[in-house]
Design a protein around this nucleic acid. Structure first.
Lengths: 350, 350
DNA sequence: CTGTTAGCGCCTTCAC
DNA sequence: GTGAAGGCGCTAACAG
């Protein structure tokens, strides 16, 4: 009735549990006859090792945890997809924990991971969540992806949101636009804050006045923001949205209002989620290789875990910076030829 | 240096480990003074219980596993999102394991879950993967979502793909279309098979000849299929794609070829992934409340786990069937008023 | 090569 | 109310 244990297998094979363990883990040497007897018993009892128990002995879980603010939207889906690929490649399991709105919520999630994972990837683009995460984890290796740019010294991967936003604005300026409105992300979100900062900076540098309307990274909020804007009779020359989903929302709002993109208003997003290339007009945006970044995050974490195992800490505490790349599509340049787009988008984005 | 154990806490609080355990789990009664001493020690040592060790004792992991196939599009993202919500609500962790191309691959994943999870949700729309999953899991509660409609008797949730496909075809027929081409899903995929079967059945019932071209559920394959079709000079009156992503691909292919949707060709998808409503023309499709289905799956699994704990198996082995609902959008009816769409889409879909 | 024996960190009867 | 001791299933020395 109950699942077989290693002891059952040992009994049936007339060997000790140690030998069974040796056969199963591959560690140590076992004579061929006994090996076969063990395997036979395993088969007969359809025995499967209890990974929980093994973890307790080995002090390894072969599992990494991912703490996310929210599982909503294409961005996180893509990220997890990339992580999953890397985890699988490294023989690791992935345990995801999302919907952590505030820091204390995330804190609880981090605690509950103790004894369950070998390391943690923490995405919490909230102010102050960073130290919190790093402290709470105890001696657990943690890779931060909290969007704050002040995490140098901690193992982390951050996107250059300020630079990316600047690039977006410069692209629009280069097309001759001056009245560029920004649809901002949610309050207290570090990524949103930086993107807005980069936008404002670039605008002022060009002698333009920054204009920001509020959003919260959802498609609906972008839609709403744009509708409000148009209803007020405001008609910017261009819109730079804090992320792609809001840009898509804005796109639809303009479509409904009969505003043509990019002829009447140009639009730029941020992230390059899969949908960005599928809407029409296709969205000009700042590409983050999302899945690739997720993959990289797991790889980094694996390194951290390996380092933590040995005392000689080689300290891979680098803060890796991802530079978003401008991808020019129809929402800013209209119907150009494929090759024209190519040459534009392949230009250096700094 | 090393994380504190329950023993350390006991020592510091001058009590036995039993009392510490009682305080932390809430089980049993403890005198207030000792309780406070324990809590003080916990705080001082910043002790966090080791969930792995606890699992070994209690025989519960408070974690559920999800086995997914290779396709990681919007569909699965949405599904996981729903599962995550439900898991969180139930105080469970979620461990995802994806990219399982073939059955034997999935089998390995299932084995490795033993001792790690309390139950499993298995999505493997491969032929024969069902029994495999059910058997391999041992006494682990398993909820099947493998798309096969022959899983009655096992706890499962399946979509009525045949009925949904029939509805799609009938919708197109009702609009006067007769030459309806189907873009099929990947070989050996049960959902794809059933959708194609429903399509063929409905076509024949109407005296039309089924025409099927191959796809694999990706946007690119839909794009390719449609391009090939147009290149061959074939111009159906309507296209029913096996899922939304392929429908979107077809949409773009037609756009590129100057074919107007729905005036020249009407298009219907399947799933109603988030993007379906965001492309233009918006996609008519068969809605599966994806996230809701994920939520429901976890709920079902929780019930199964609870049932397995007690000997009196109330056998909730029902096979729950999800009926897709037709959502009419512009890709089949063009620019109608919102209210007109409403009344159309709210009609019974059988 | 193989068996014996401690633990891993925690929960949980059972006496006190 | 509290403590002592056994055990969850497995691995990892250490002896033979």
């Amino acid at each position: 009735m109950k699942p077989a244990t290693i002891r059952d297998v040992a009994e049936r094979a007339k060997v000790s549990v140690a030998s069974v363990s040796r056969v199963l883990t591959g560690a140590g040497v076992v004579a061929e006859p006994t090996r076969l007897r063990v395997l036979e018993a395993v088969e007969a009892l359809s025995y499967v090792p209890h990974s929980g128990a093994r973890s307790l002995s080995t002090n390894r879980t072969d599992t990494v945890g991912v703490i996310l603010p929210d599982l909503f939207g294409e961005f996180f889906s893509e990220l997890i997809r990339g992580m999953d690929v890397a985890a699988r490649a490294a023989g690791l399991h992935l345990i995801v924990s999302s919907s952590h709105d505030d820091a204390s919520d995330a804190a609880a999630a981090i605690r509950s991971m103790r004894g369950r994972v070998d390391g943690l990837i923490v995405l919490s683009p909230h102010l102050d969540a960073a130290n919190l995460a790093a402290n709470l984890a105890g001696r657990l290796p943690v890779l931060l992806m909290n969007g704050g740019n002040n995490e140098a010294g901690r193992p982390s991967i951050v996107v250059d949101n300020i630079g990316g936003a600047r690039t977006a604005v410069e692209h629009l300026l280069s097309l001759g636009h001056r009245r560029i409105t920004h649809i901002g992300g949610p309050q207290g979100n570090l990524e949103a804050r930086d993107r807005q900062a980069g936008y404002a900076e670039a605008m002022r540098a060009a002698g333009c006045t920054p204009t920001v309307v509020a959003g919260n990274f959802t498609q609906a909020s972008g839609h709403q923001a744009m509708r409000d804007l148009l209803a007020e009779g405001v008609r910017p020359e261009a819109v730079f949205a804090g992320n792609d989903m809001m840009a898509v929302g804005a796109l639809l709002a303009m479509q409904e209002a009969g505003v043509r993109v990019p002829d009447d208003v140009a639009v730029v997003g941020f992230d390059d989620v899969p949908i960005a290339g599928l809407v029409r007009p296709a969205l000009t945006t700042l590409r983050i290789e999302i899945a690739e970044t997720g993959r990289r995050a797991v790889e980094r974490l694996v390194t951290l875990i390996a380092a933590a195992a040995r005392p000689d800490d080689p300290s891979a505490d680098a803060c890796e910076i991802i530079t978003p790349r401008l991808v020019v599509r129809q929402s800013t340049v209209g119907e150009r030829t494929e090759s024209a787009l190519q040459s534009l988008s392949s230009g250096d984005s700094t």
